[in-house]
Design a binder for these strands. Structure first.
Lengths: 223, 223
DNA sequence: ACCTGAACACCGTTCAAGT
DNA sequence: ACCTGAACACCGTTCAAGT
């Protein structure tokens, strides 16, 4: 395999993936088009197919690159619960910065980013002292929770303008909950106030902690 | 509002939603097209727009109908944990029978089906004796886990033929895990065998139970 | 009020032809 | 080896025209 010198404006898989990421960030999930991408790179749409098999592969590669940058490797001295929280928050922040990652992550099974995520969570679950038979279930519970929140955040971002006011959106949804039929929706009504004032990131972390408690309680492990 | 007698083959929102559901079940998520749907109903694509605003509304309505049929109301004498498990399994089974429901449920925020789900889980969380301040987080954790698994199952169904052999797919993925670099993927390698033999539904339920343990432990509640 | 179907403005992807 | 861009086979959606 010989890498020959190239013109600076030559196409490459890396440049394509970067441009796709920029397009997705700027325009949202609907903004990534082979035509728009080609225009961005000063070529025709067909040129991209020389470097990338199809749109799915492009999305997978872009997701992979973002998560590799954002999800931290396990810190040296971190306890397993801290490491798990760090991974979970890394995914959360990646999706907050690039909502399309949340969609992509829940769309293609057995993609590399998903495997790495499961691996990292699993390693820490093991380090937590969870018995072998319960490790798979415990790591799966964490992963599925992380993915569920991620998909939801992605959907929320898709539903509103990129620059939309966060508090306004929450307020509107909270108002909708408060206005529901009391006979049918007593719970939603009762937590409408909490929805309005809640901190997304903190609540996400609370959920992770709750699952961690469940894991260690079930396993008889010691935090 | 007067309902006038119609010809039996007249279009109606209900007939359209039913046909869309049938099409999605038979052909998968890519099978729902306004042209295909119109052909199925012996009309032109434009006719559908008289009864339904757009494709999103159609998908939301179909999802809503399926979940209303499949997710059971709380049984009279059921304990809160049993009721939560019943709701969770209802969603699981709905998505197993109609994988597109899993995609749809994680795609549009604040759709009615999602609200009802959160309400049902929340009511049982409250019945569990969880203090008011922790109810929102606890119900969210359950919902996000359920949605995460649902989205993943939908993605798996999308990736394979409708008639594909379940064991064969699991076996292939397990083999892939077993063949990964031992230095980088020790956890995935170690659980590859569990993946091959695991029962999806049982593991899902184990995850729900794990979160329930976390909820009651955090709340100091009594099951 | 409800239906028809041609037409519009897009897509992802392919492929002969170029360099 | 790599790029070009017209062309193909689709989409969702609209809308004048019909009944």
């Amino acid at each position: 395999m010989v890498t020959r010198p190239r013109r600076d404006d030559a196409l490459s898989r890396e440049r394509i993936v970067d441009a796709a990421t920029a397009l997705l960030d700027a325009e949202g999930e609907g903004g990534l088009t082979f035509r728009a991408l080609a225009a961005h790179l000063n070529t025709g749409p067909g040129a991209i197919y020389w470097h990338v098999a199809n749109k799915g592969e492009l999305l997978t590669a872009a997701t992979d690159a973002v998560l590799n940058r954002t999800v931290p490797a396990a810190a040296a001295g971190a306890t397993p619960p801290d490491a798990i929280r760090a991974v979970a928050l890394g995914v959360f922040d990646a999706i907050e910065a690039h909502p399309w990652v949340g969609t992509q992550l829940t769309h293609m099974p057995s993609q590399p980013a998903l495997r790495r995520l499961f691996e990292r969570l699993g390693q820490q679950v093991r380090a937590l002292g969870v018995p072998a038979a319960a490790q798979f279930t415990s790591a799966s519970a964490l992963l599925n929770y992380v993915l569920g929140v991620g998909a939801q955040n992605a959907a929320n971002a898709r539903a509103h303008q990129p620059g939309a006011d966060r508090g306004e959106i929450l307020g509107a949804e909270a108002a909708a909950w408060a206005g529901l039929d009391p006979g049918e929706y007593p719970f939603l009504r009762s937590v409408a106030g909490q929805l309005r004032e809640h901190d997304d990131r903190q609540q996400y972390l609370d959920g992770v902690n709750l699952i961690l408690v469940g894991i260690t309680a079930c396993a008889g492990g010691h935090t």
